[in-house]
Amino acid sequence: MAQQNIVVAGAGIGGLTAALALAKAGFRVTVLERAGAIEEVGAGVQLAANATRCLQALDVYERVRANAVVPAGFAVMDGRRGTVITSAPMGAAAETRFGAPFLVIHRADLQSALATAAREIPAIDIRLGRTVDGFTALSSGIAVQAERHDAASGEDSESIHALALVGADGLRSAVRGVLHPAVRPSFRHRAAWRATIPIAALPARLADPVTRLWLGPGAHLVSYPVKAGTAINLVAVTPDERQLHGWGLAAAPEELLAHYAGWSDDARALLHAPDSWLRWALFDLDPLPAWGAGPVTLLGDAAHAMPPFLAQGAAQAIEDAVVLADCLKGATDIPAALRRYEALRQPRTARVQTAARGMDRLYHLSGPARLARDLVMRTRSGDAMLERYRWIYGWRA
């Protein structure tokens, strides 16, 4: 029945978390995913306390934790000198400080944990190989046109009647395209290069459970453990003018290494370790003045895609999911509940988007500005850096 069902477009981190939260709130959920299988490639995800607190509330934290790592510390490194600019303990100290743990995890492991949890709930129906082809508001909710792409049976379509439609279908959201056809992702003139390497391939000094941010002129590098501590995830961000979008774009290691000429031996040891890299162009969205209309709303990257420089993209989608479910639970006026969700989420996500864009400039300074930044960071403790982001990490639904 339409009044019991909510359609979620997208089975990424945001869409699956939304399905879990909505089912917990008493709804049936139909998840439409354009891919033929739920899978993600070579990327890590940092889950700060604001995200893990939500996962705990949804009873999936322990499942996620099984393949994750709790970092023992974080360090900001001088990429050229290889020295520590500032650092702070994490682990139990960070959990005590912010009331929930910090995790780092491979994206595929996170998505697998969420998908497995969702498939165990009878109220959640995940339909693969389906895209949202359109939708029509009805007096009783919404009719969602879902088109199926199947190599064996060809193409067909169906109309799903539901209470609401949640567009959690990513940066190039089909749902947002109908709601806001003039909105286009903004190219950041940077590429992110990702690789995962076995921890045994690195010297012990680089294989400890520490999240490291290596800063240098025009580029930066992030390293942290994943796969329950058996691998290291690398993210290198460089200038780039190629706008071709996608996860599976092979990248030439020698091209990447040219951006890091003159960097420290440790940084270059990390960069030399992978046999191959994947590269994709970085895009985000300007904060939207409105997300949804009627019985339709947006969630995650579809609503507020942001640069990865605060490691909050997945966390903000997870936050969206729990707030959305809370607003809809027991609601009799669904469009009004969706507008309440948007009113609660828009100011926060816009602030995080803006802060992430600001870190782009800060991370990539050169010359005297870079030296001044490093001096300020050395003067302040790593604990002070964490406290600077209490407004992010300390958030509670």
Rank of each mutant, 00 (worst) to 15 (best):
S276E: 15
V178C: 08
E255M: 07
E319S: 07
R373L: 04
A369S: 13
F283A: 02
T116E: 15
A258H: 11
A251D: 11
S139L: 08
V8I: 10
G358V: 04
T196S: 13
G129S: 07
V166H: 02
C327F: 00
L278G: 05
D208G: 15
T131N: 07
T379I: 11
H304C: 09
Q312Y: 01
Q4R: 15
I199A: 12
A258C: 07
H180W: 12
L386F: 13
G91H: 10
L271Y: 03
A317M: 03
P253Q: 05
V235W: 00
R194T: 09
R345E: 10
G91M: 10
E40T: 13
A350L: 04
V104N: 07
A191G: 15
G382N: 02
G218Q: 04
E33R: 04
Q243V: 10
R390T: 15
H259L: 08
P287W: 08
P198D: 13
A152E: 05
R348W: 09
V76G: 00
L128A: 06
C54V: 15
R80D: 12
F98V: 02
V296H: 00
G129Y: 07
T332A: 11
F135Y: 15
G82W: 01
G229V: 09
A231L: 01
V210A: 11
I105W: 01
L299I: 08
A9H: 01
Y389L: 13
D360R: 07
H272Q: 14
I38D: 10
